[in-house]
């Protein structure tokens, strides 16, 4: 068999597994593009978790009660954990965490653009948990069925842990809307600033999405951007109403026939502008990450040096 025939046979077997809803596992043969596509998506997801620690970290030391501080800290810590699970899943594809971090810091790899928006008030801790994590969860629930085993398993663990994130965010909003007029205004302001960017988290319309078609075929993605976004819009509408806040989308209207809400158009110029680097925090987020990484270099070096000394001692003793 020629190597081309071999590849085509392997590809057939691979697609057969995908169609049969069998998971692809690390040691399996997979098309190079599938591997690359997965690495891109999983590492972007991991970077998002890690960069996502920053806006909330920005308010951690100002949390207005000890209870909220403990909750917020455990949420941010979970994000670090989720970043780690995802890096761990991506590493099974033959890329190192170093390479991924390097790609992030050099700007070659992306993270969710939502984190380029600044966290300005305590209410933003509520809106981020409720809307940003809420949008992420809609996406992640769908990804629990993704075709790559380690990614799917990571998603299952993440979803299990993340439901508390959205609930604690909504709980912050509930407390604010039931508080003083200033607190309620703070909640409204935050909803206004985060609602649209949260919708943008689902990415461009399906017709515009560069990676969508192939990802769907390979079952890396299980539902389209627009379908997922619709789910989020539908579930959020009643949550906003319950808070007694004004809906930021003035065109939002229930469509009986579709069984969904119709909504106003996203400001795609803003979407592209922030992705292009013109958000409030694009540079700041990366610089923060790079600074921490560089400041930690001597610690990592010390670990390696200590380990080498220890090994040398053991060899000597043996």
């Amino acid at each position: 068999m020629s190597s081309e025939q071999q590849t085509s046979l392997q590809e057939k077997q691979f697609m057969h597994k995908i169609k049969a809803e069998e998971k692809i596992e690390p040691k399996d043969w997979m098309p190079e593009k599938y591997r690359k596509n997965l690495i891109r998506q999983i590492s972007q997801h991991a970077h998002s978790e890690v960069i996502g620690m920053q806006p909330e970290g920005n308010f951690l030391t100002r949390a207005p009660s000890l209870r909220r501080k403990a909750i917020l800290l455990s949420k941010i810590q979970d994000e670090a954990g989720h970043g780690l699970y995802l890096y761990s899943a991506a590493e099974t594809l033959g890329i190192s965490r170093d390479e991924m971090i390097e790609a992030l810091q050099s700007g070659r790899a992306k993270y969710a653009s939502i984190f380029n928006y600044p966290a300005l008030t305590w209410a933003d801790m509520g809106a981020i948990g409720w809307l940003v994590d809420g949008a992420a969860i809609v996406n992640q629930v769908s990804l629990q069925r993704t075709s790559y085993g380690p990614y799917a398993r990571g998603m299952i663990r993440i979803c299990k842990e993340e439901s508390f994130h959205q609930r604690q965010g909504y709980d912050i909003m509930l407390t604010l809307v039931n508080g003083s007029p200033e607190q309620k205004a703070m909640a409204q302001d935050s909803l206004n600033r985060f609602y649209w960017p949260a919708l943008m988290m689902f990415g461009p319309h399906d017709s515009e999405s560069a990676h969508s078609a192939k990802s769907m075929e390979w079952k890396i993605k299980r539902e389209t951007n627009d379908d997922l976004r619709q789910k989020f819009i539908d579930q959020t509408a009643s949550q906003i109403e319950f808070l007694g806040l004004e809906h930021p989308d003035k065109e939002l209207k229930w469509n009986e026939e579709r069984g969904h809400y119709d909504s106003g158009e996203i400001d795609w110029d803003e979407f592209h502008n922030v992705i292009a680097g013109n958000g409030h925090c694009n540079r700041q987020r990366l610089e923060h990450h790079i600074k921490a990484h560089e400041e930690g270099a001597w610690v990592r070096e010390a670990l390696v040096a200590y380990n080498a000394k220890k090994q040398a001692k053991q060899t000597e003793a043996a």
């Binding site: 620690m53 501080k69 780690l84 930690g296 270099a297």
Partner: peptide
Amino acid sequence: SEWVSRGPFLEEDIAYANVALDYIGRA
């Protein structure tokens, strides 16, 4: 807690946050 997102690597970031959580709980 000021170390959050500033640890020398991710594992340590997570681990040190646990220590902070213990102290906030103690407070």
